[in-house]
Design a protein around this nucleic acid. Structure first.
Lengths: 346, 346
DNA sequence: TTGTAGGCGTTATCAT
DNA sequence: ATGATAACGCCTACAA
């Protein structure tokens, strides 16, 4: 019977494990072990194999090894928005950990509520492609756990009852901002939160608002409403524009935005309306975005990159069987800059 | 001989193509064809297969198909810095195209010059993992082409003699900025460029500087030097700080930054030094970063996301055998905002 | 139009 | 400590 060659070997194909084995005069099994630093390989042989591999410029085909081993060496990141500063910092943090460990990161957006539901039910999109998943702002619900058969998941931004989750203390975040504004004499504050749709499901939004409430309760502070900033710059701009173009009497003296990006939009609105930021109006953001310092934005700093690193570490842990059902909380702090100051007196 | 079962099927494993075949009472081959919308499959059978697949919650194991077909359905992105706004927009654009086409994006940083050299010689890191690669700011050199055996590559930010590259007209970018400043009466301009190391290899930096030169030549304009802003916010801040804290006589009236992020740093420096932006000092950036509008930064807008989309389209094209050896240039424009204005008269 | 069966390159089991 | 070899799950050339 003739050997069945698929495509005529057009060019110099890549070396396979068999080529290395032949050159090093050992079996494929030994090559495989040597390449992966397994014990029980005679140093001399190991050296011979590595040298042969180098000579042939050999690297194991990831697909073949994935198929054979059943491990993908890949972690999936699922987020609602990929282009935000928050998510890009997160990915950077995740990569910090994944790459040295020889793992890949597979990113996937999840824009529609429908797809969000899909994730809760089972990560079809990542099926058999990842060993673990990191979910950010998907709002799966306290009691959630990955459906049986699905890879383990780490959840960022929501506290799971039993589990693999981490985040910051959002109540504290809201509280710190509120405390700061109250201390500066502000008595009329407007919140620029997420979209109204998100708000319903998002613990993040709820908790930050709750923290603010705690800080102001009993201080005679009025919250002039919670407007929709969609967590975008434009959203923050429009929201602020609407609020701040009111008559000074009905205007807040301070605006607390649930993200720095919305705060940037608010700053723009202030500028266009000729309001002095930090004097006529105080603006406080959330995140400590990389340009927050440059624009002098007072904000609640959260360690986003670190959050990513921790998540990745736990993902790796989960893969190797460590199931630490703990909610991990990372520290935040208020960073005072020029965008906030004493309430303007009239 | 006993059947050699690897791991005892601990849980309800995932359905395989064989399961679907059995349930639909067809061969594996037919399942494979039906699932991939191949022609020459009786509609009735196709329907039966799809239904069985749905019922078993079956999705093809990507690794197995990759191994069998030799295609990874993955495109690699190699960049020097992953956390910049530019690269994150680029990835977003790439994903716009890749995802609908059922392809994955694999991202890889390339921080050190040594690793950069590795890429020029052969993309070891992506070997057998991607069907095509997109290289951004790697500066491979005009005559470069992927080494034989390596997947096709699309280069962003550098014009290859023969091929697969795209970018903007950097000379024009520098020119537009220069023209704008000259028109506003500026006669002393400082450039905040990249790091001195990068500058030597980077056509981007060279061309933008050249464009500026062209715009100012013969207009009695003095370039007060090209300082290193490292393409970061902090870098821009420090560079600007140093320049602008000089005696007014030796100070430029305008600063042209080769990225918006450096311009943000420059704006911060101005604020801290009490210099009126747009009056005492004009600042022009490059990119049209998403917060540029919010801070009123005059800048050269480049369509970064579109650049990513085009690159991805060409990557997909290259995979399917289309080799269009053309350098594609995307349009840019000056966006005038409040950070620039007439030169301050003394 | 459908089925059969070999092979993709690696890992892991078993035997030595 | 090393070697032989059966999976892993899919794709595809070829036969029918």
């Amino acid at each position: 019977m003739t050997r069945q060659t698929r495509t005529p070997p057009s060019g110099p194909q890549h070396a396979t494990i068999a080529d290395v084995a032949k050159l090093a005069k050992v079996s494929k099994a030994t090559v495989s072990r040597a390449m992966r630093d397994f014990p029980h390989v005679r140093p001399e042989l190991r050296e011979r194999v590595l040298q042969a591999a180098r000579q042939l410029n050999y690297v194991a085909d990831p697909n073949a090894s994935r198929l054979a081993s059943g491990k993908t060496r890949t972690v999936g990141l699922i987020a609602t928005q990929l282009t935000t500063w928050y998510v890009s910092q997160l990915s950077a943090g995740i990569e910090d950990v994944l790459h040295p460990a020889g793992n890949d990161l597979l990113v996937s957006a999840l824009s529609t509520p429908k797809r969000r539901q899909e994730v809760r039910d089972g990560q079809t999109q990542f099926r058999q492609r990842v060993d673990a998943a990191i979910l950010v702002d998907v709002f799966v619900g306290k009691g959630w756990a990955p459906p049986p058969g699905d890879p383990p998941a780490i959840v960022i931004g929501e506290r799971l009852n039993s589990g693999q989750s981490l985040g910051i203390d959002d109540v504290l975040g809201g509280f710190l901002a509120g405390q700061h504004l109250v201390a500066h004499g502000h008595r009329k504050i407007t919140l620029i939160a997420g979209s109204s749709v998100t708000a319903r499901f998002s613990p993040v939004v709820r908790y930050r608002a709750e923290g603010l409430q705690r800080a102001i309760s009993g201080k005679g502070v009025e919250i002039l409403g919670e407007v929709d900033g969609a967590f975008t710059i434009e959203g923050g701009y429009h929201a602020a524009m609407e609020i701040l173009s009111r008559h000074p009497r009905q205007r807040p003296t301070a605006v607390f935005c649930f993200s720095d990006e919305m705060a940037f939009g608010a700053l723009q609105a202030c500028r266009e309306l000729g309001l002095g930021v930090g004097s006529d109006i105080s603006v406080v953001g959330f995140d400590d975005h990389s340009v927050a310092e440059a624009v002098g934005l007072t904000t609640i700093r959260q360690p986003v990159r670190l959050l990513g690193q921790r998540a990745a570490e736990r993902a790796l842990g989960a893969i190797s069987g460590t199931t630490d059902h703990v909610h991990q909380v990372l520290p935040i702090e208020l960073v005072e800059r020029s965008s906030s100051g004493p309430a303007h007196r009239r």
